[in-house]
Design a protein around this nucleic acid. Structure first.
Length: 550
RNA sequence: GCGCCUGUAGCUCAGUGGACAGAGCGACGGACUCCGGAUCCGUAGGCCGGGGGUUCAAAUCCUCCCAGGCGCACCA
């Protein structure tokens, strides 16, 4: 990578000056007059060496191996601006072609086992837009970690024992009885699920089961309804995920925690362990986790006075399973901002088990606001007033949905304007990026004959500034892949791909490829090839397709 | 009240220590006999929410205030 090359040369110069242990910072200036790369090292060393930056910069330049540079100068108050020789830039292209499909990957993770848990919506209905963001972020982060040499497992946690599923089952049963023309044996559950989909599934249930469930004792009937309802939900969820192109390594059911096994169910074992460590207390008929003893602000109920474990309790046992039983080095949970209050107690839980809290990363993304035209649509599953992910996928298409949901920082609120996404899909940046890829594919289709052996192509004919700009941008790709993974920031990838597509469109607009004399045509083909590789890779990491034709 | 996130062009958002702050959409005006015009070029539009501080250098870090979102349950 060119940045590394520059950094290394500067480090050598510093060595010669007798300055050691300093990593010179090298950045890409915004303005081309400031060079291909620029360093502020003279400012950084000012206090250490007590030398005016400008003078220091001059001394560094005097000791710099200027071989790779066409120009090296001190500017402003002491910036070192470096201009690379075109052949150095072309060498970077050579490296990209040599790396081929693997360009951009790194071994940073050293094979560490990382679990990424995402999705994990309450199994009480179809996924809505908010969970679209969850799932798309989690999947992209998993892709990014894998590309950086981590061993990644993707997992979806199904809370099939919580109170929400119970409520869902009761709602479903209520409508089922109604669908059969009978009077439900109990009033509609408080804060139950009254969305149209519940009624629809109830009708399906009535058609499939007839009056079978009516004849069961109520408790059995509800249990059976829960089982069937859960199946129905998961079928929908899996279909939506498939449409988005998301595949999990494992679906973990909460109920697994309560299955009896050697030494009792895992859940009971974990509770015993916490009790033995002195982190439990009994109060007001409930069992509490003494989170305040571990840095949290308040204690938490684990087992309610009804005797039923709460959501947090399951998560404690579940994460014990992840870290202690399955031995993941790191775990990343992807949660919506409405779960942020859950973070401190999870960190407290890690400490309770004697685990380094740093091994658990929780990515909180801000909620999605949906706008239809000018007006905001509230997303609430329980009120039944929500737009499903499926609806959106059908209207906008998976590529645009994924790109749109990824194109903003997880920290930023995301406004999804349905009308805009539908009506202006042609202006959506994702098409702009895909179109660049398609244009390249078009060139290769037009080529007909065999493409050259890339390693043997003489790149010297690439002299135009637009060509060199393109190469420099391609060269930055590995840094983007690394930074996006390290900071859980797939939007960096989206921005990068957009910028790359832009540079390619400019190049394509101004120059011809196949019509040129063979040496130039071959060199430009090589540039196209590298661009295509990187576009494909970037889109692939986001889970967006790279079409040959559009 | 406390905690987390956010406040940058009319709108949606990039940019988290560097040199005159960027993109898309929207507005206006241009470009192809040619590998796909879903493209390219240009114009207009900003005291980067406000005050104070740190620094050679602040949209970026600290602090206080203002505004919005989300939390602060024996829901998840």
């Amino acid at each position: 990578m060119l940045r590394e090359l520059v950094r290394a040369r500067l480090a050598e110069a510093l060595d010669r000056l007798g300055v050691t242990g300093v990593e010179p910072e090298v950045s890409v200036p915004e303005r081309t007059e400031h060079g291909d790369f620029s360093s502020n090292i003279a400012f950084a060393l000012k206090s250490r060496l007590g030398c005016p930056p400008h003078q220091l910069a001059e001394r560094i330049l005097a000791h710099l191996d200027q071989g790779p540079f066409s120009k090296a100068e001190v500017a402003g108050a002491g910036f070192i601006n470096l201009f690379l020789k075109p052949e150095e830039i072309r060498r970077a292209l050579q490296a990209i072609l040599a790396a081929g499909e693997h360009f951009g990957e790194s071994g940073l993770g050293r094979g560490q086992r990382v679990q990424v848990e995402y999705g994990s919506a309450n199994p009480t209905g179809p996924l809505h837009l908010g969970f679209g963001r969850n799932v798309v972020l989690g999947d992209a982060i998993a892709n990014l970690l894998a590309a950086n040499g981590y061993t990644v497992e993707r997992e979806y946690y199904v809370n099939d024992t919580g109170s929400q599923v119970e409520k869902f089952a009761a709602s479903l049963y209520y409508f089922y009885v109604q669908a059969l023309g009978r009077e439900p044996p109990f009033p509609f559950p408080e804060e139950g699920y009254r969305g149209e989909y519940v009624r629809e599934w109830a009708r399906e249930l009535a058609a499939a089961e007839g009056e079978r469930l009516l004849r069961l004792p109520q408790e059995r009937a509800l249990e059976e309804t829960k089982r069937l309802g859960l199946e129905r939900v998961l079928r929908t969820v899996r279909a939506d995920l498939e449409k988005l192109g998301i595949d999990y390594d494992r679906w973990f059911f909460d109920s697994e925690l309560f299955i009896d096994r050697d030494g009792g169910p895992l859940f009971a074992q974990v509770m015993e362990l916490l009790r033995a460590k002195g982190y439990l207390k009994d109060e007001a008929g409930a069992v509490w986790f003494k989170a305040t003893a571990l840095g949290a602000e308040k204690d938490e109920v684990l087992i309610r006075s009804t005797g039923r474990p709460g959501y947090f309790a399951s998560d404690v046992a579940y994460h014990y399973n992840k870290f202690v039983e399955r031995g993941f080095d790191r775990v990343i949970d992807v949660w919506g901002a409405d779960h942020q209050g859950h973070v401190p107690r999870m960190k407290a839980m890690m400490r309770a088990f004697g685990l380094d809290p740093e091994r658990l990363s929780i990515l909180i993304y801000q909620l999605v606001t949906l706008k239809r035209g000018g007006e905001e649509v509230r997303l609430s599953k329980r009120s039944g007033e929500f737009v499903t992910l499926r609806e959106l996928l059908d209207e906008v298409g998976p590529d645009a949905v994924r790109y749109f949901l990824l194109s903003r920082s997880p920290d930023a609120h995301l406004e999804f304007d349905l009308e805009l996404a539908k009506e202006q899909s042609k202006e959506n940046p994702v098409f702009y990026i895909q179109y660049a890829h398609t244009r390249i594919a078009g060139i290769f289709r037009e080529l007909r004959g065999k493409p050259p052996r890339w390693a043997e192509v003489d790149l010297e004919p690439l002299q135009q500034p637009e060509e060199l700009e393109l190469i420099k941008h391609l060269d930055e790709f590995p840094e983007v892949v690394r930074d996006a993974a390290l900071h859980f920031a797939p939007h960096l990838l989206a921005n990068y791909a957009y910028g790359l597509a832009g540079l390619f469109h400019i190049f394509y607009d101004r120059y011809r490829v196949l019509d040129e004399a063979p040496p130039l045509a071959r060199a430009r083909l090589a540039l196209c090839r590298a661009t295509q590789l990187v576009l494909r890779k970037a889109l692939g990491l986001m889970g967006v397709s790279a079409p040959e034709r559009m």
